[in-house]
């Protein structure tokens, strides 16, 4: 009798979409069919910035979103968008599953939201059409498309590259025609966008490993019984391993396809000089004590 409307900008069959559907199945089973989840995939209800507002207003109940749009709303979330903040995907999982993750998730409740769980957004690395990047020096002068965000622009600048904000849909032809030299993304996007057809070099520097979140409308959550609230929180937690498993499979499939296409993969670079180059970026963007403290705590996580 309770239908939770959930938004996702990814298409049908995408790991995050399937994971929320799986969460719905768990809920339906555990509540004897009382609670179900309806997923509106492919941005049917709007882009992330809009659906966040809709969730805050209680118009929709659940929402799977990236952390980027929250950076201007919840300061703490910025820490996850810092370049090279995570050493590896395992490190990221350890952080979000631990205390730091819980603390940041708790911040959402100050903004009419309930943070339920972290999902994976993959690890982003550089690809280009010119040459294999094995050191920071190789990036010098290359034009990379980045997302519209000050941190990402500053990151590329700090590495000596040329940050060029472009709409995602224009990237393929822009690399093809040499307007830009490359872009950066995770395995699945590198593959599904077809960018690997025009950018033959992929360097796994994993500069960004940004998790995503599943949030719920606070109004909706508080209108439910304590028992139902617990059911929802648990189901969201249980959807995380489902999501990680699907994501790993998807990543692997994409990697195989890209490798089979003959893209040259650089997967053994020394990341230290890249990380050192980020000092200026951290200086500019990690200004508050809150963020400085979070950076220290994240680095301390094994």
């Amino acid at each position: 009798e309770i239908t939770l409307r959930s938004s996702d900008t990814h298409p049908e069959g995408y790991p995050t979409v399937v994971a929320v559907e799986a969460m719905g199945e768990m809920l339906e089973e555990r509540s004897d069919g009382r609670i179900c989840v309806e997923v509106f995939h492919s941005a049917q209800l709007g882009e992330e910035k809009d659906t966040i507002e809709q969730t805050q207003l209680g118009v929709i109940d659940l929402n799977r979103v990236s952390l980027g749009p929250f950076n201007n709303i919840i300061e703490e979330t910025k820490v996850f968008s810092l370049p090279y903040i995570f050493r590896s995907t395992d490190h990221m999982h350890a952080v979000v599953d631990g205390e730091v993750g819980a603390d940041i998730l708790a911040e959402f409740s100050n903004h009419d939201l309930v943070g339920l769980a972290y999902f994976d957004g993959g690890s982003r690395s550089f690809y280009n059409s010119k040459k294999p990047i094995t050191s920071v020096a190789d990036i010098e002068g290359l034009k990379f498309r980045v997302m519209q965000s000050d941190v990402f622009v500053d990151m590329v600048d700090a590495l000596g590259g040329n940050a060029t904000p472009l709409p995602y849909g224009e990237v393929y032809s822009s690399i093809q025609t040499g307007v830009i030299d490359g872009a950066e993304n995770n395995w699945p996007s590198f593959e599904s966008s077809g960018h690997y057809e025009v950018a033959g070099y992929y360097t796994l520097d994993q500069h960004l490993i940004v998790p995503e979140v599943l949030v719920m409308s606070k109004t909706k959550m508080e209108s439910l019984s304590a028992e139902d609230q617990a059911l929802i929180r648990q189901a969201a937690k249980d959807a995380v391993p489902v999501m990680r498993d699907l994501w790993a499979k998807r990543e692997k499939a994409s990697e195989e396809k890209v490798r089979a296409a003959g893209v040259e993969i650089v997967d053994d670079i020394d990341k230290t000089p890249f990380i050192d180059a980020m000092d200026v970026v951290y200086e500019k963007h990690v200004t508050s004590d809150k963020l400085k403290d979070l950076v220290t705590r994240i680095r301390a996580v094994e």
Binding site: Q148, D150, N162, A163, T164, P165
Partner: peptide
Amino acid sequence: GRFVLNDTPTWTET
């Protein structure tokens, strides 16, 4: 800016 100055202004779009 993008073609001639090699420096894309980021404020124009918004």
